[in-house]
Design a protein around this nucleic acid. Structure first.
Length: 570
RNA sequence: GCGGCGGUCGUCUAGCCUGGUCUAGGACGCCGGCCUUCCACGCCGGAAAUCCCGGGUUCAAAUCCCGGCCGCCGCACCA
């Protein structure tokens, strides 16, 4: 790096200077972890989002739908999701060497007791009472502090009405799953997608646009039947995945291996075929943003690196300047963790019912009880006894009966054997209930903005050319008169208006030399520049110049706009 | 959060050590004018700096001291 600015600095400098992004609240000194998107950044981001929609929703419209749910979320949701518990770390600092420790782990190790669920105050007291000291330097420890990465707020004027800004969009998909599933005529598999703002109160964000306290997330929660998951449409997205497995990481390997999507599933490297499928979609999406495949791979997270809800997670890593490999997406197998949690806390039935092709009849053993006898014998305790008898194992009753005992004892109640009977009956089962499993591909949009700029940034002969793929370029067309003179100016302005009217994001520029204007347009990645020159008034033709090759073609004035449309959609 | 380094027009920077000559200089960019028949041409003019913020020392602070904020690096932390 030294005095020579590295690429990252140049990208960030360009971003600020030309209006892609900059630190928020700059006039007040800025706040770490917050960035504004400027005019070009906003356009680029919305193009990235449009492309994501295309890959993850439009091209999967037979199974994925998009919804929108609130950022502000009542506390109970995060109790159910485990975020309140798992997003909170009790941390204690050594007063001398300033090293930080997880207070709970420290106490559990030192005192060999379980402290799960204890408050910070209790943990502090335990440290004081048992004289737990810094394991490194032996000095006193400070107060136990709680770090919760959820931003807290209140709903209405009631401070007891706690709420949090969501740290992921996912919970909105889980809490509305039942409704969406119904709306989608109870079909599985079902993907619910959402694009929206999320907030995480990072303890100390670094890395500029890479680690933000508030950002836009693009997620799909993909619900399927764990027993009959169906077949991913590999004809749409298949091929190979570059993967660094957890095993390989433990062995000390650093580079990924290549596996076919199906192969990875068959060999158990990816635990679920849908997880593998969405990774293939993610690979192509990132490629479409201009990242070559050798600058990207998937890394399996080790158990301690995974979120509390996941049983297997892969991060999609992309190489950018300065920060090296950064995570642009996460692919988590969440199982039924979330729906289970919400069932428990809401009391709602979030299971899915699936009819069998044919109803199944099966023989089951049921306990029949003579309620008259029970009633007379146990009076007001009868209800309790009946409930116990219902839940008790039929084998236990059969065993007692076969031994010829005169009564069966359950939790202190002596039930006469004559009042109980085990019968085998035929039961007709028309289907089964289950909790769907979920795989989740999840992307951070702002990181992708940075990633795209970093990959697009090139320098040619002292000038910057932002080689963003044409279909995500913020501005598609620049219109110039060769020199700022009539009739060239009028013709150019007319063409410019026509382009705007046709929905092509375009700029008009007539200041300075033509070379300077090409350079200005190149710097922000405008793929095509149309120049009105002295030949135009004569034969009604203009030149179209392509950004990366600087090649020019002459086309008729009347067909320019449709030509540009074709070119940028290619 | 700890430690190190840094923060001056839009951008990059000179000045800071050795306080006054700084009404803060330059380059690029930007704006206006002239010029210009295809890749940052040239000429003229212009706008543009809370010298990161606050306090202190001093007759005098961009410059020295303290605190804070922000950034980078290292450590710690990281759903």
């Amino acid at each position: 790096m030294s005095r020579e600015h590295d690429k990252y600095d140049k990208v960030v400098e360009l971003a600020k200077r030309r209006g892609f992004f900059w630190p928020s609240f700059e006039i007040y000194g800025g706040v770490a972890g917050f960035y504004d998107l400027g005019p070009l950044g906003t356009l680029l981001k919305s193009n990235i989002i449009r492309l994501w929609r295309e890959f993850f929703i439009t091209r999967h419209m037979d199974m994925v739908v998009e919804i929108e749910t609130p950022v502000i979320t009542p506390e109970v949701v995060f109790e159910a999701s485990g975020h309140l518990h798992h997003f909170t770390d009790p941390i204690v600092e050594c007063t001398s060497c300033r090293r930080k420790f997880r207070a709970d782990q420290l106490i559990e190790e030192a005192l060999n007791v379980k402290v799960e669920g204890r408050s910070a105050e209790e943990l502090t007291r335990m440290i004081r009472e048992n004289n737990v000291r810094c394991p490194f330097c032996g000095s006193d420890l400070g107060e136990v502090r709680v770090f919760n990465l959820l931003f807290q707020t209140f709903i209405g004027p009631y401070t007891q009405n706690k709420a949090y800004l969501r740290p992921e969009a996912a919970q909105g998909m889980f809490t509305s799953f039942k409704r969406v599933h119904k709306v989608m005529r109870e079909k599985l598999p079902l993907g619910i997608a959402q694009i929206g703002r999320v907030a995480r109160n990072e303890i100390s964000p670094r890395q500029g646009m890479v680690r933000l306290r508030e950002f836009t997330i693009m997620e799909v929660e993909f619900f399927f039947d764990p027993e009959e998951p169906g077949e991913p449409p590999l004809s749409r997205f298949g091929g190979n995945l570059r993967i660094l497995t957890a095993d390989a990481k433990v062995r000390g390997e650093e580079g990924p291996e290549t596996y076919g999507v199906e192969e990875a599933v068959q060999e158990g490297i990816i635990k679920n075929k849908w997880l593998a499928y969405w990774m293939a979609v993610a690979r192509d999406f990132i490629k479409a943003l201009g990242v070559p495949e050798n600058h990207m791979y998937f890394e399996e997270k080790l158990p301690h690196e995974r979120a509390h809800y996941a049983t297997q997670t892969f991060d999609q890593l992309v190489r950018i300047s300065r920060w090296g490999w950064i995570e642009v997406s996460g692919h988590a197998y969440r199982g039924d963790y979330d729906l289970q949690g919400h069932m428990r806390y809401s009391g709602q039935d979030l299971t899915v019912f699936k009819k069998f092709e044919k109803p199944v009849t099966r023989k089951v053993e049921k306990v029949f009880v003579n309620k008259v006898v029970i009633g007379k014998l146990f009076k007001e305790k009868s209800a309790e006894v009946l409930k116990l008898l219902e839940s008790v194992d039929t084998d236990l009753i059969k065993e007692a009966l076969s031994k010829g005992e005169s009564y069966i004892e359950i939790k202190g109640f002596k039930v006469p054997a004559s009042a109980v009977e085990v019968r085998v009956i035929e039961e007709k089962v028309v289907g089964r209930k289950f909790i769907p499993h979920v795989v989740e591909p999840s992307f951070g949009a702002e990181r992708l903005v940075l990633m795209v700029l970093d990959h697009a940034y090139t320098e040619e002969e002292e000038r910057v050319v932002l080689k963003v793929p044409h279909h995500i370029a913020p501005i598609k067309l620049a219109v110039f008169p060769l020199v700022a003179k009539e009739p060239l100016v009028s013709i150019a302005k007319e063409l410019f208006s026509k382009a705007l009217a046709e929905g092509i994001p375009a700029i008009y520029d007539d200041s300075g030399s033509i070379g300077r204007r090409y350079a200005r347009a190149d710097e922000v990645g405008v793929p095509y520049a149309v120049t009105v020159d002295y030949q135009t008034p004569e034969d009604k033709t203009v030149t179209i110049r392509e950004r990366d090759t600087r090649a020019q073609v002459r086309v008729g004035l009347s067909e320019v706009v449709s030509r540009i449309k074709e070119l940028v959609h290619a």
